[in-house]
Simulated assay, not measured.
Amino acid sequence: MSTYTVPPRTGHPTLLYSTLALDLDNLQADIAVLGMPYGSPYSAADFSNDQTNAPTAIRQATDRVVRRPGHYDFDIDGPLLQGREDIRFVDCGDIIPDLSKPRGEHYERAETAVRRIAAAGAVPIVLGGDHGITTPILRGLDQKGPITLVHIDAHLDWRDDVNGVRDGLSSPIRRASEMAHVDRIIQIGLRAQGSGRPEEMEAARAYGAELVTAYELHDIGMDAVLERIPDGGNYYLTIDADGMDPTIMPAVAGPAPGGVTFLQARKLIHGLVRKGRVVGMDIVEIQPEKDLNQITCITAGRLILNLIGASIRAGHYDK
């Protein structure tokens, strides 16, 4: 058996009562959770920042997200797996780096793990970690192109490098723009200040990224934003927790008022499922020590639940 990951550390062994599945070379799955606690650090402090605890914290919110997986859920008009006993929902554990080799090696392992998950026909749902983790995950989905990248974030994330590091948390959208299988980019919830100097704005606009500030979103509504996303596509959804409003996701490093609401994010997820196929999703940048009554991790879990339930209802896993 080839093993790329390790089991979750404590408490709930998996997310949302899924089955633990560590043998990615012989994976049988339709939906596969993957934890990636570490990105590509800018400094020594990043080895132990609180975001590395987020995959465990999100899993530990399982019984607050879903009390019983067979119970009816109004978000998805049925139970989590819609009563489908044939749906194979697994948790593949966490990608853990050798901290003596902080850059490169575990990104390669994460990319390989995602390729294994995709080759099994499963959709990866990745728990970060900082936003740097989106880069290797997207690289591992190169057979799913052309991909429309849908990005919820307060920040632009188009930095070319920080401290010489080109695949860290401020650069995932810049790196995505360089991938041949990423076609269109739409960024939603931009506001306040951070990782968006004038030169990054110029680069994003030159590429043709669709930039939707939080203020425009609130003015025009998510339905209007969905109309800008091409129908019939393959979509990858990356959600930075600080893109959501801090009233519902407070456990972030840089909270900014006026973010994406839960109802807007839910509408986006259901809209993407109806328009085409979501080929992957990640949630990043949660700092559990700053959470209040687990609300950030519960919200993350509810967004994942909506993707799973809505995709099954849409027939995406019909054999």
Rank of each mutant, 00 (worst) to 15 (best):
T247N: 09
T247P: 00
T247G: 13
I248Y: 06
I248E: 07
M249R: 05
M249K: 03
P250C: 11
P250T: 11
A251V: 11
A251I: 05
A251W: 04
A251N: 07
V252I: 13
V252A: 11
A253K: 12
A253W: 04
G254H: 14
G254L: 12
G254I: 13
P255V: 08
P255H: 04
P255M: 07
P255T: 05
A256D: 03
A256S: 05
P257T: 14
P257A: 14
P257W: 08
G258C: 10
G259I: 13
V260T: 15
T261R: 13
F262T: 05
F262Y: 14
F262Q: 06
F262H: 05
L263I: 12
L263H: 15
Q264G: 03
A265P: 02
K267V: 04
K267A: 12
I269K: 02
I269M: 06
I269S: 00
I269D: 04
I269A: 04
H270K: 15
H270Q: 15
H270M: 08
G271H: 14
G271M: 10
G271I: 09
L272D: 03
L272C: 10
R274S: 12
R274G: 10
R274D: 12
K275L: 08
R277D: 09
R277L: 13
V278S: 12
V278P: 08
V278D: 13
V279E: 01
V279W: 00
V279I: 13
V279S: 00
G280S: 08
M281I: 02
M281C: 08
D282I: 00
D282V: 00
I283F: 15
I283H: 15
V284S: 08
E285P: 03
E285R: 04
E285V: 09
Q287C: 01
Q287N: 01
Q287W: 00
Q287Y: 03
Q287M: 03
P288D: 02
P288W: 01
E289W: 03
E289D: 12
E289H: 10
K290W: 11
K290G: 12
K290C: 12
K290A: 12
D291R: 00
D291L: 02
D291V: 01
D291S: 03
